[in-house]
């Protein structure tokens, strides 16, 4: 059972079940816990090779036991996501913890990843259970519906959920090269039905200065 002890500390109550969490993110626990590094995020040899090839590396550990375990990472804000069979797309650097029963994997994202310097791939989480994702500042959840497509700055994108198509928009014109660009040269447009998590801060991206 995931709950937020504060906006920056995740508490997980466990009764013998397992949780996957970012390596080294445990800050405290009571009860009996066993920590085990999951080689390749528990995705088997194939997942390990995929992650190595795609650069979407993450080191997860498996926490198992009875009691309460607390997780936090660099005072990032934590957002809980409940999954009922759908898929959550999240950058591996933003994933803090997930229920042991959730399947993780990698997927191709296209040019969005390239523009934010995170590589061309992202992590997916699928199944029934809860996941905790991190953001710099509390994330804002924005609904995308067919009549309201959403455009997001690649540096502020954290995660998304639902049946969304993403396309890459470039506002680069000859003015960008004259140093008079609009400051938002790269954008991702989401269309379809779903929710996008946006953080009130921008990662340093190659597009940040154009």
């Amino acid at each position: 059972m995931f709950r937020l002890q504060s906006s920056k500390v995740l508490a997980v109550d466990m009764t013998g079940d397992a949780v996957k969490a970012k390596n080294g993110s445990m800050v405290a626990y009571d009860g009996q816990m066993a920590f085990k590094t999951l080689t390749g995020g528990g995705e088997g040899i194939r997942g390990m090779v995929t992650r190595r090839l795609t650069g979407e590396q993450m080191t997860l550990m498996e926490v198992k036991g009875h009691g309460t375990c607390f997780f936090a990472d660099r005072a990032s804000e934590i957002n809980l996501v409940s999954l009922g069979g759908e898929k959550l797309y999240v950058e591996s650097s933003n994933l803090l913890a997930a229920d042991g029963g959730l399947r993780t994997g990698t997927t191709f994202t296209g040019l969005r990843g390239a523009s934010q310097g995170n590589g061309l791939f992202t992590t997916t989480i699928e199944g029934h259970g809860q996941a905790a994702i991190m953001s710099d500042g509390p994330a804002v959840l924005l609904r995308v519906s067919p009549q309201y497509p959403l455009t997001v700055d690649p540096g502020a994108y954290v995660a998304h959920q639902g049946n969304l198509r993403q396309s890459f928009q470039s506002g680069v014109t000859f003015r960008t090269f004259l140093g008079e660009g609009g400051g938002e040269a790269f954008q991702i447009r989401f269309e379809g039905d779903g929710v996008v998590y946006v953080q009130p801060s921008e990662r340093n991206t190659i597009a940040g200065d154009v």
Partner: peptide
């Protein structure tokens, strides 16, 4: 520059020299 994180609708960003 660069402080937009997301928008709905159509928004255009132009440099001051436009």
């Amino acid at each position: 520059k660069g402080k937009m994180i997301a928008y709905y609708g159509t928004v255009e960003f132009n440099g001051i020299g436009h």
